[in-house]
Computed example of a mutant assay.
Amino acid sequence: MSQKPMTKTQLVSALADACGSDKQTANRSLEALAEIVSKEVAAGGAVTLPGLGKFQCRARPERMVRNPATGEQFQKPADRVAKVTIAKALKDVIND
């Protein structure tokens, strides 16, 4: 399990090979997808990529947190975080 993660260059090359297109087109497609998902999630929406998962924005309430270095507790204001839920199809592929 110590395999290095796929780089963007490797992903673009694999995408270009799979689609039968050139690397520039694959790169533009990947960047467009990332931009669309980012904008939708930042606006509070959700995006489902079939077979991969669901990207959504989740609101977290105001809460007490602790600084691990000093042990000091303080109130952290409410914020929003991105959440990714993995699709069952991907889980099945991983566990087979």
Results as ranks from 00 to 15, higher is better:
Met1Asn: 14
Gln3Asp: 13
Lys4Ala: 13
Pro5Asn: 15
Thr7Lys: 09
Thr7Pro: 07
Lys8Asn: 11
Lys8Ile: 06
Thr9Arg: 14
Thr9Val: 14
Val12His: 03
Ser13Val: 09
Ala14Lys: 09
Leu15Glu: 02
Leu15Phe: 06
Leu15Ser: 02
Ala16Pro: 03
Ala16Cys: 09
Ser21Asn: 05
Asp22Asn: 15
Lys23Met: 07
Gln24Ala: 03
Thr25Lys: 05
Ala26His: 10
Ala26Asn: 12
Ala26Met: 07
Arg28His: 07
Arg28Ala: 01
Ser29Cys: 06
Leu30Cys: 11
Glu31Thr: 08
Ala32Arg: 01
Ala32Ser: 08
Leu33Pro: 00
Leu33Ser: 04
Leu33Gln: 06
Leu33Ile: 11
Ala34Leu: 12
Ala34Lys: 04
Ala34Gly: 02
Ile36Phe: 02
Ile36Leu: 05
Ser38Gln: 07
Lys39Val: 03
Lys39Trp: 03
Lys39Tyr: 01
Glu40Phe: 00
Val41Gly: 10
Ala42Phe: 01
Ala42Lys: 12
Ala43Cys: 02
Ala43Gln: 11
Ala43Arg: 03
Gly44Lys: 08
Gly45Arg: 08
Gly45Asp: 04
Val47Ile: 04
Val47Arg: 02
Val47Leu: 04
Thr48Gln: 15
Leu49Gly: 11
Leu49Pro: 07
Leu49Val: 08
Pro50Gly: 04
Gly51Ser: 08
Leu52Trp: 10
Leu52Gln: 13
Gly53Pro: 11
Lys54Cys: 09
Lys54Tyr: 03
Lys54Pro: 04
Lys54His: 06
Lys54Val: 05
Lys54Trp: 00
Gln56Lys: 05
Gln56Phe: 00
Cys57Lys: 06
Ala59Asp: 14
Ala59Tyr: 03
Ala59His: 08
Arg60Gln: 14
Arg60Cys: 12
Arg60Ala: 09
Pro61Lys: 13
Glu62Tyr: 14
Glu62Val: 14
Glu62Leu: 13
Arg63Asn: 02
Met64Tyr: 05
Met64Ser: 15
Met64Leu: 13
Val65Tyr: 04
Arg66Ala: 00
Asn67Ile: 08
Pro68Cys: 01
Ala69Thr: 12
Thr70Ile: 11
Gly71Pro: 01
Gly71Glu: 06
Gly71His: 03
Glu72Leu: 01
Gln73Glu: 09
Phe74Asn: 01
Phe74Met: 00
Phe74Tyr: 14
Phe74Gln: 00
Phe74Lys: 00
Lys76Val: 03
Pro77Leu: 09
Ala78Lys: 14
Ala78Ile: 09
Asp79Trp: 10
Asp79Arg: 03
Arg80Met: 00
Val81Phe: 15
Val81Ala: 15
Ala82Pro: 15
Ala82Tyr: 04
Lys83Thr: 00
Lys83Asn: 07
Lys83Pro: 02
Val84Ile: 14
Thr85His: 05
Thr85Lys: 13
Thr85Ala: 13
Thr85Arg: 07
Thr85Tyr: 01
Ala87Pro: 00
Ala87Trp: 09
Lys88Trp: 07
Lys88Arg: 12
Ala89Glu: 13
Leu90Phe: 06
Leu90Thr: 10
Lys91Ile: 15
Lys91Cys: 10
Asp92Gly: 00
Asp92Asn: 00
Asp92Arg: 07
Asp92Leu: 12
Asp96Gln: 05
